[in-house]
């Protein structure tokens, strides 16, 4: 109580002109979202898991390839045609789950806890919150994933040196593939935040994310094959895979086309999220 009365005495006579000139700016919303991300334990745990999946599964794949070659075991077609890049990026499929789920938590977590009311009371224009969340988390996911890709390739390519799959960083397309994987996972993070904001539910967001990245490609195989060929390359998961695959054939998109298509999906998800954020009550 004493604190209040003292501030009352010092502030009251000064009146309006002495009030500090606070103001909401885009950069400040960004810094707030940055602080929000790192002040939750779940961020550290999930990012750690994503990095672990990325590195551990990549190295396990590399080690298995190496031991199969050494022992002269027969390998099935796909695995036999592996490259140092495809082996190192084996963990991408698992890391995308961790990074996508954290993306959903970044936005939908605010709705499930009620934090969103505080957030939107502070930034009632709303949209800066969505852009900041997507930018901050997308960047973090990109950095973690790129780090994971390069570390795994650095160690993994050493493990399989001397095998048909061996490659170095200077090999054509390697750097592009590793960066592509980082970019893909960063965008998966952005899609996660968009789905979380669109659906406002952690469970809903994760379900749609998993369905989009993992189930839909399976469902498409039920369609007539002529349709499949037209649709398949443009699915989010396949377009994304084109971004980091080392080799491309007639059934897949080029890395740049894959990036553009995947960016399109990301923009679509963000547009849906922005629409719902602006239009509906909290």
């Amino acid at each position: 109580m004493s604190t209040l009365t003292t501030t009352a005495e010092t502030e009251a006579p000064a009146a309006a002109p002495a009030r500090p000139a606070y103001r909401v700016t885009g950069r400040r919303v960004l810094s707030s979202e940055w602080a929000k991300l790192w002040t939750l334990r779940s961020t550290w745990i999930t990012l750690g898991l994503a990095l672990l999946f990325m590195v551990a599964f990549g190295l396990i794949a590399s080690a298995r390839y190496k031991s199969n070659i050494d022992s002269g075991h027969h390998m099935d077609g796909d695995f036999a045609r592996s490259t140092a890049v495809s082996l190192s990026l084996f963990g991408t499929h698992f890391a995308q789950l961790a990074l996508g789920v954290l993306g959903v938590l970044v936005t939908a977590g605010e709705y499930s806890t009620g934090m969103i009311r505080s957030t939107l009371a502070a930034v009632p224009r709303r949209l800066p919150v969505l852009w900041s969340k997507a930018a901050v988390y997308g960047l973090v996911a990109l950095v973690v994933a790129t780090l994971g890709a390069f570390v795994t390739f650095g160690i993994g390519s050493g493990m399989i040196s001397g095998t048909p799959a061996a490659m170095g960083f200077s090999h054509a397309g390697v750097a592009r593939s590793l960066l592509g994987a980082g970019l893909y996972l960063g965008l998966v993070g952005v899609i996660g935040t968009a789905l979380g904001a669109l659906l406002r539910s952690v469970a809903g967001g994760i379900s749609v994310l998993v369905a989009t990245l993992m189930l839909i490609p399976g469902l498409i195989s039920l369609l007539p094959s002529s349709w499949q060929d037209n649709i398949n390359p443009y699915l989010p998961s396949n377009a994304g895979e084109s971004m980091f695959a080392l080799t491309h054939d007639s059934t897949t998109l080029s890395p740049m086309a894959g990036l553009l298509v995947f960016l399109g999906w990301t923009a679509l998800a963000l547009a849906g999220a922005a629409y719902r954020l602006v239009r509906s009550d909290v």
Partner: peptide
Amino acid sequence: AKSIHPGRSAYHHLRTLALTHG
């Protein structure tokens, strides 16, 4: 209704709100 994230400390909750306004 509660308008906080239960995983964040009281200090950090207030700090994240303060950051938006400088």
